Computed example of a mutant assay.
Amino acid sequence: MSDNNLPILHSYWRASSPYRVRIALGLKNIEYQYAPVNLLENKQASDEYMQKNPAKLLPTLEIDGLVLTQSVPIMEYLEETRPNQGVHLLPSDPIKRHTVRQITQMVASDIQPIQNLRLLKKLKEDFNVDEQGKAAWSKHWIELGFNSIEKVLEKTAGKFCVGDDVSMADCCLIPQVYGARRYGVDMNKYPIIARIERACAEMEAFKKAHPEQQVDKF
Rank of each mutant, 00 (worst) to 15 (best):
E125F: 06
D126A: 14
D126Y: 13
F127N: 05
F127H: 15
N128Q: 12
N128P: 00
N128E: 08
D130L: 12
E131L: 04
E131M: 01
G133W: 08
G133Q: 03
G133D: 09
K134P: 02
A135T: 14
A135H: 01
A136F: 01
W137C: 12
W137H: 12
S138H: 06
K139F: 01
H140P: 00
W141I: 08
I142A: 10
I142E: 02
I142W: 09
E143N: 11
L144M: 10
G145A: 13
G145E: 06
F146P: 06
N147R: 15
N147C: 06
S148D: 02
S148Y: 03
S148E: 04
S148R: 13
E150H: 11
K151W: 01
K151G: 02
K151R: 12
L153E: 13
L153V: 07
E154M: 03
E154R: 11
E154Q: 15
E154H: 05
E154F: 01
E154A: 14
K155W: 02
K155V: 06
K155F: 14
K155A: 15
T156F: 12
T156I: 01
T156C: 11
T156Q: 03
T156E: 12
A157K: 00
A157F: 06
G158T: 04
K159G: 11
K159I: 07
K159R: 11
K159C: 01
F160Y: 15
F160L: 13
C161A: 10
V162L: 08
G163V: 09
D164Y: 11
D164W: 14
D165K: 13
V166T: 10
S167Q: 00
S167V: 08
M168S: 12
A169L: 03
D170N: 14
D170Q: 08
C171F: 02
C171A: 13
C171D: 05
C172P: 00
C172D: 00
C172I: 01
L173R: 02
L173N: 08
